[in-house]
Design a binder for these strands. Structure first.
Lengths: 133, 133
DNA sequence: GTAAGGCTTCCCATTGTGGGAAGGTCAAGA
DNA sequence: TCTTGACCTTCCCACAATGGGAAGCCTTAC
């Protein structure tokens, strides 16, 4: 099948399929005589794997690693390690964002939000001192 | 003072100060005869404002808006609106990431993480069907 | 005067995705 | 057979925010 069909079947845009090929996450597809990329059912499966991993927030680097582990039937140890590393990063980002959110909510709570220019939010921003990260 | 000093005093790197000037978030600094940028205490204050807003996760677009509202003593209504918009976006991202985290933790929990290649994480990725976003 | 360190601009890289242009290809219908 | 529309190709540009580094000018202290 052509790239468009593979894109529809995998949920990865044609643009992205070419990109993944270019950065080496997936191998270069075979070509027809007229230089069209050709995909098999198996390739679509690989693309679905990538898609799902992206949906779970994995970086392309880790996805490449996961793909390798999957296709070569390597020990699950590595897979679990990668996944838990990712979970730890997610946790870090979540905590950061929650701290921001809390700070902003507290500031906004005390902001009248009316015609007056006085505003605890601007107060905070203009007297930088507290730490949110 | 020169850009290096302003950077040290504001916590914004010289590189970033030039960038903010270039994209119009801060006005172009005055120059000395030898083309060095010159900053006042007031400029540093503005940079600190930007820094703090970045720490709270605001996008540069919103920071530009906030700076305008601050410097022109505009009604706090707008400020509050911008802040709450940002909070809502943070919430959305936090929820997304928590969903990913939950999914991954559940999958990892059932992964032996040993020498065997069987792994529920790879199982999930290769049978894409569930939705995480 | 010279050396060190600061400043200037310009280009490149990151991460993941998309838009769009210019041009080749293919299939179906008139 | 010719045309047309839909598809494919590559190449460049964009986003947001940040950093690295090069080449060259300026300043300051010794």
């Amino acid at each position: 099948m052509n790239i468009g069909e593979a894109a529809a079947a995998s949920g990865v845009s044609a643009k992205m399929i070419r990109h993944y090929e270019q950065i080496g996450v997936i191998p270069a597809a075979e070509r027809t005589g007229s230089n069209y990329r050709v995909y098999s059912q198996n390739d679509v499966h690989t693309l679905q794997f990538v898609r799902r991993a992206r949906d779970l927030g994995f970086s392309m680097k880790r996805i490449q690693a996961l793909l390798g582990l999957w296709q070569q039937h390597r020990p699950s140890r590595e897979v679990k390690r990668l996944a838990l590393e990712h979970v730890r990063e997610l946790e870090g980002k979540i905590r950061e964002m929650e701290a921001m959110k809390r700070t902003l909510e507290q500031l906004a709570e005390h902001c009248h939000g009316d015609h007056r220019p006085e505003c605890p939010i601007l107060e905070d921003l203009s007297h930088a001192s507290s730490a949110a990260r």
